[in-house]
Amino acid sequence: MFYIHCPYCQEHREEEEFHPRGEAHLMRPADPDNATDEEWGDYLFFRQNPRGIHHELWVHSVGCRKFFNITRNTVTYEILETYRMGEQPSITAETEKVRKEQGVQTADGGWQTIGAQPESQALNEETSS
């Protein structure tokens, strides 16, 4: 259960008031009629699904009904920031500070043994360096 700061209500609310709507900052091709099938297919069906920092579109459906964005670590589930429509994230996967901090907390994705897998250990060190 997330605790989400709604940038419009300006306070934290329980997850049950919100709906996730997938990846944020998707651009509908400006000229759909002249978009290629591939461009349109990318827009419709293909998503980043990253391990780590992800920007997501959510809506405060039981609340102000406003859509907004969340920068979230898909591994730790930590919400790093929420921001209004039309704004850009201040934290991205490229932010060096985040790479460090989040790298340390990264669990062994998919592998449930804590500390058992040398390769996942290496993966963590890689992301944190």
Binding site: R28, L57, V59, S61, R65, K66, F67, M85, G86
Partner: peptide
């Protein structure tokens, strides 16, 4: 209703 708001708020504000 949410669909209409989605398009209005994110695509055609």
């Amino acid at each position: 209703l949410e669909w209409l708001e989605l398009w209005h708020q994110t695509e055609w504000p």
